[in-house]
Simulated assay, not measured.
Amino acid sequence: MSGDPKADTAADLALLARATGYALEGLAEVTRADLGRPTPCPGWDLRALLVHLADAAGSLTALARTGDLVPPGPPGHGGADPAAVARNRLLVLLDAASSAGYGTAARAAAVEVAAHGWDVGRACGSARPMPPRLAADLLAVATSSLPDALRPVSFAAPVDLPATAPAEDRLVAFLGRRPAGSPVSGTAS
């Protein structure tokens, strides 16, 4: 945070754009055959995760446009390709956040979007790493702004890792996921 609200908003929006880009890369790898695969989120296959990501992006778009966080409606998007729905909603979120000068809330959205981008990659068996600088920036946001009261609702307990682990591993471990190289066991949401 620079102390300059305009510069901070620009940095927050840039972080959201980078996180969205990372998630979109993962969504591009999804095939219909992948939709039944397990994810790092307990009880969710890839289809359920994609529906959640699309719904979260829709809720965050409403927040950017109206200032009110609107919970997602009933799960599901008919027969639509859930990866395409998630992709479209992420692009709408990014546009709405930029148009509204979304600011501080963009940081929280960036963590959510990137974490689920990571989940998608793991479910698809991708070895595509999160860019190190993005992971470090998101780790700083997550560790400084995730209230303990939100953890049981949104994230599993942190996974212990040494401080010398790469930022990507520390980020996903902080969010209750097992870092790459660990089996997908369903540990987070």
Results as ranks from 00 to 15, higher is better:
residue 2 S to K: 03
residue 2 S to C: 01
residue 7 A to D: 13
residue 9 T to P: 00
residue 16 L to E: 12
residue 19 A to H: 10
residue 21 G to Q: 01
residue 24 L to P: 00
residue 27 L to F: 11
residue 27 L to W: 09
residue 29 E to K: 14
residue 31 T to V: 08
residue 32 R to N: 03
residue 34 D to R: 03
residue 39 T to Q: 10
residue 42 P to T: 15
residue 42 P to G: 13
residue 44 W to E: 01
residue 45 D to H: 11
residue 46 L to F: 12
residue 46 L to A: 06
residue 47 R to I: 00
residue 48 A to C: 00
residue 49 L to Q: 14
residue 51 V to W: 13
residue 54 A to I: 04
residue 55 D to T: 03
residue 56 A to V: 13
residue 56 A to D: 14
residue 56 A to L: 13
residue 57 A to E: 00
residue 61 T to S: 09
residue 61 T to C: 04
residue 61 T to L: 02
residue 61 T to G: 01
residue 63 L to K: 09
residue 67 G to A: 07
residue 69 L to Q: 12
residue 70 V to N: 01
residue 70 V to L: 14
residue 71 P to C: 09
residue 71 P to I: 07
residue 73 G to C: 07
residue 74 P to V: 05
residue 76 G to F: 09
residue 76 G to K: 05
residue 77 H to C: 01
residue 78 G to L: 05
residue 79 G to P: 04
residue 90 L to T: 07
residue 91 L to W: 00
residue 93 L to G: 08
residue 93 L to N: 10
residue 97 A to F: 03
residue 105 A to T: 01
residue 106 A to T: 03
residue 110 A to M: 09
residue 118 W to M: 07
residue 120 V to C: 04
residue 120 V to E: 01
residue 121 G to Y: 00
residue 124 C to Y: 03
residue 124 C to W: 04
residue 140 A to S: 06
residue 140 A to L: 06
residue 145 S to Q: 13
residue 146 L to G: 02
residue 147 P to L: 12
residue 154 S to Y: 12
residue 162 P to W: 04
residue 166 P to I: 02
residue 170 R to N: 05
residue 170 R to E: 02
residue 174 F to W: 14
residue 174 F to V: 04
residue 174 F to S: 02
residue 175 L to D: 07
residue 176 G to K: 04
residue 180 A to H: 12
residue 181 G to K: 04
residue 181 G to F: 10
residue 184 V to M: 03
residue 188 A to Q: 11
residue 189 S to E: 00
